[in-house]
């Protein structure tokens, strides 16, 4: 009997350390499925970040480097230039990519490095215990903004996808969400497109995935999904921010 749905070959058997309901697991699966479907699992090289997904190398069934905090795009640049035939991706959270690693991601994008970045944005620092991140929404309560993020003091959240899409080296930038089955399917299509963009050698590609952090948001997984839809989607609109793949056709 054919199996309709099973664990992709791109994931190992290791049980993840993520909290119950954390959507990192969904994004891991999407990346693994895409690598398998594109037939590039054997030549895929991931670069894991620092943050909740620091142990991603345990879960992806391909070669994975561990980068210093925020430096995944720099490491991926080296890997891709040394082995141009490989398919290189970074998997980063918002504390990693949008805070300490802003320089790396911006310059990797503007150089047009032929790598793919999967950017998981959950608007908070997860691993360190729920502090305010650059992507924390105005008014959002975190450990370090107990009265809500005050934009007079802490400034405004960064819309990473929009920022990266202004750079000429970026070829494909899309923001997706994993709050519903429909959006999970769209997220998979976006990740696939981003990897195709790299394989075709068009340029840098980034997919921002809006994600939930039930533990540090202090909500149940179900309430977190509602919070994402109600609060994050208005500030972080979904959609393709840049698509050079169409221009090159």
């Amino acid at each position: 009997m054919p199996i309709t749905f099973t664990k992709p070959r791109g994931l190992t058997d290791a049980p993840t350390h993520y909290c119950p309901g954390c959507t990192h697991g969904i994004v891991h699966r999407l990346v693994a499925e895409v690598l398998e479907e594109l037939g590039v699992l054997d030549k895929a090289i991931g670069v894991a970040p620092v943050g909740c997904s620091v142990l991603a190398f345990e879960y992806f069934a391909c070669d994975v480097f561990e980068a210093a905090h925020g430096r995944a795009p720099a490491v991926a640049t080296g890997v891709k230039r040394a082995k141009p035939d490989s398919v290189v991706f970074t998997y980063q959270g918002d504390g990693d990519l949008a805070a300490i690693g802003t320089a790396e991601i911006v310059h990797a994008a503007t150089r047009g490095e032929k790598i793919t970045t999967v950017f998981v944005n959950n608007a908070i620092y997860g691993m360190t215990g729920g502090q305010m991140a650059p992507t924390t929404l105005p008014g959002q309560v975190t450990e370090t903004s107990p009265y809500g993020r005050d934009t007079n003091i802490a400034g405004f959240p960064i819309r990473v996808s929009e920022m990266i899409s202004t750079l000429d080296g970026a070829a494909y930038v899309e923001r997706v969400s994993v709050d519903s089955v429909k959006n999970v399917l769209k997220a998979k299509m976006a990740i696939k497109r981003a990897f195709e963009c790299q394989i075709e050698g068009i340029g840098f590609s980034l997919v921002e995935v809006l994600s939930i952090c039930p533990t540090n948001w202090g909500l149940s997984p179900q309430e977190s999904m509602d919070w994402l839809r109600d609060h994050m989607l208005p500030y972080y609109p979904l959609g393709v921010k840049k698509d050079k793949t169409k221009e090159s056709e």
Partner: peptide, 19 residues
């Protein structure tokens, strides 16, 4: 009905579906 919605939302890939 083997729609696989549950499996697609499972963060731990703990669900397998056969039609």
């Amino acid at each position: 009905i083997a729609c696989t919605f549950c499996a697609m939302m499972c963060p731990d890939v703990a669900i397998e579906v056969v039609p």
